[in-house]
């Protein structure tokens, strides 16, 4: 039984006829970092949203640790899935400072435990002195690290990252890529990374999946091609 199992998933956005995903399947082992590559519009973000529970699939099943998340009969709301997500534009809450952003997902902890956890996370992303800043007072790279800290703080089972580097310039990216690799290694978290950049994927991922945009007339019923690095 694989850690994350996606089986025969299909999806089209409401009000549109064309399917974004059709009969898509993918399995992830525990601790595996999978890279999703593919041209624009091939449905990478949509796949992440389906796994996260932000959209409900038209067909197919998603399960995590053997527990069904989405299927014909069952749908677990996103807040109950134990999945963390780093958004492309980070989506840090503008009305909260860095510490409160990171503490936002920590529930069922005492005040002290929560404070310690926030401090640990700040140290993990090397922003120990920035807890009181507001998101708009941070550079792009710093914001991105806060987004990681926030997503990792509640210890999710699975981490989804949608083009986390796209807002960074290439020089900054090299540094961050190294840090992220360390971070993923340290936490040992199962993750999916969507990226446009082959180098990112090569550097960070154990396995790379290439998504081709689905064109019904050309490849009806065919599974998406898997390329293993």
């Amino acid at each position: 039984m694989s850690f994350v199992s996606i089986h025969a998933l299909s999806y089209s956005y409401p009000g549109t006829a064309a399917a974004v995903l059709n009969d898509f399947s993918l399995d992830l082992e525990q601790g595996e970092v999978v890279g999703l590559l593919g041209q624009s519009g091939s449905g990478k973000s949509t796949l992440l949203r389906l796994i996260a529970g932000l959209e409900a699939p038209s067909q197919g099943e998603i399960s995590i640790q053997g527990e069904t998340m989405s299927s014909r009969h069952k749908f677990v709301q996103p807040e109950r899935r134990g999945v963390g997500m780093v958004f492309q534009d980070y989506a840090l809450f503008p009305h909260m400072n860095v510490s409160r952003n990171i503490a936002f997902g920590l529930r069922g902890l005492s005040r002290n435990e929560r404070k310690n956890r926030v401090t640990d996370m700040l140290e993990l992303v090397k922003l120990a002195d920035y807890g009181h800043r507001y998101p708009h007072e941070l550079s792009g790279g710093q914001q991105q690290r806060v987004a990681f800290a926030r997503a990792l703080a509640p210890s999710p089972r699975l981490l989804l990252m949608d083009e986390p580097f796209s807002n960074l310039d290439s020089e900054l990216k090299n540094g961050i890529r190294k840090e992220l690799k360390e971070l993923l290694h340290q936490t040992g978290i199962t993750s999916i990374l969507v990226t446009h950049d082959h180098e990112d994927a090569e550097a960070l991922c154990d396995r790379i999946i290439r998504m081709t945009s689905f064109m019904p007339e050309l490849q009806a019923g065919k599974k998406h091609q898997l390329v293993t690095s």
Partner: peptide, 25 residues
């Protein structure tokens, strides 16, 4: 919708998300 989605991903339901994230914004 980004902020609301981020809040859901961090374990807060629709109602908690409304009061903690959406309403202040």
């Amino acid at each position: 919708e980004r902020y609301s989605e981020a809040s859901r991903m961090l374990g807060h339901g629709v109602t908690a998300t409304f009061f903690k994230v959406e309403l202040p914004l």
